[in-house]
């Protein structure tokens, strides 16, 4: 009994509540006759789609700059990568990995500057990061209008500038999803997508076990300890920002190929928030995060949305209750997590 209680405590009240809420929704879904196989399939796709973006939170959190609310910085780099890939007429796998290759140096550079900025505002990283993210979105809104992209796929027919949503179905749509994909009954497993996500998770896990990863974790948990151990805290924070931005760029490319649309202008604005909410649901705090938090958190957060949508549509036929639920849940979780910041974290 004691053991159970301590296990439960370790698991966290918030996570327990979320899981119960999810189960409740699931029960209702089954009661109103929604196919559970379809729900599971959708959940898997969304796990793979959003996973990398959530994974981007890990290096940011452990290096001590906190949950990366400035994720849109990485996202716009990824979007630029895809747009260039379209311009270069790349197809299928070439398009996906070409876009990543183009986005990578951009994200490196942007992340480096971002890290330097965050080192100057120690103590209020989350607030500053949020506004850096917003600024990046609006700056790039000007960019999307003025950058000299010519491909008819991505730009308006008349006048200048890029479209609000660019269809990339034919060029690179579901390339990863369909790779080695197979069916179990009616359930379609997006093998390539999940594989790509899990490989990145594995790499991150290995990094966390490495000397560099340990040093980064120490600088996040207790900068003064790290400093006293001869670890360059500022450099680790910059490295964390770069890694996070790069993963953000890769993440949006994975997301877009599965979504089959590239969303420009104001679309990236809240993506950082959703990723933060997901990893916090998974059990991370603003100071500690593990790869397992990413997987569990993304699955719970996205699962909630997948199940809530049809249930809400069934119960209330008008309006967009699902969207409202999602906003309430994600912001509520962020709020909850931020109130817990002073309690410190889990194990290194």
């Amino acid at each position: 009994m004691e053991l159970l209680r301590s296990k439960l405590q370790e698991f966290g009240a918030a996570r327990t509540l979320i899981i119960m809420f999810l189960l409740l929704l699931l029960a209702i879904a089954l009661a109103v006759g929604i196919s559970p196989v379809g729900l599971l399939g959708d959940s898997l796709v969304r796990l793979g789609m959003n996973g990398v973006l959530v994974l981007a939170m890990v290096p940011a959190i452990i290096s001590g700059i906190g949950p990366n609310f400035g994720l849109p910085l990485g996202i716009v780099c990824g979007l630029l990568g895809v747009l260039v890939a379209i311009e270069l007429q790349l197809m299928k796998f070439w398009a996906v990995f070409g876009a990543m290759a183009i986005a990578l140096p951009l994200a490196l550079l942007v992340g480096w500057g971002y890290g330097i900025l965050l080192n100057r505002v120690k103590g209020s990283e989350m607030m500053v990061a949020t506004y850096v993210g917003f600024s990046a979105v609006f700056l790039m809104s000007i960019g999307w209008l003025t950058l000299p992209f010519k491909s008819p796929e991505s730009s308006w027919f008349i006048g200048g500038g890029l479209r609000v949503t660019v269809s990339i179905m034919d060029r690179m749509g579901k390339v990863l999803n369909d790779f080695l994909s197979f069916n179990i009954g009616e359930l379609v497993v997006p093998t390539g997508l999940l594989l790509f996500f899990l490989i990145l998770c594995g790499l991150m896990w290995v990094f966390l076990q490495s000397k560099a990863g340990m040093a980064m974790k120490a600088s996040g948990i207790n900068p003064r300890f790290a400093e006293a151990s001869g670890i360059n805290v500022n450099r680790n924070r910059i490295a964390g920002a770069i890694l996070s931005t790069v993963l953000g760029a890769i993440g949006i490319i994975v997301y877009a190929q599965s979504f089959t649309y590239l969303q420009l202008y104001r679309a990236p604005m809240w993506m950082g928030f959703h990723a933060v909410a997901a990893i916090l649901i998974g059990g991370a705090t603003v100071k500690t995060a593990k790869v397992s938090h990413v997987i569990l958190g993304t699955f719970l957060f996205q699962g909630l949305l997948v199940v809530a949508l049809p249930v809400a549509n069934n119960i209330m036929t008008q309006g967009n209750l699902a969207e409202i639920t999602r906003i309430i849940v994600s912001n509520g979780i962020i709020l909850y997590a931020l109130t817990q910041t002073r309690k410190g974290g889990a194990k290194l």
Binding site: I221, N222, R224, F225, A228, T288, G344, A346, K347, L348
Partner: peptide
Amino acid sequence: GVGLLLSSSIAE
């Protein structure tokens, strides 16, 4: 404050 990573293990 400086000497320990309080939430980490003895080994670490």
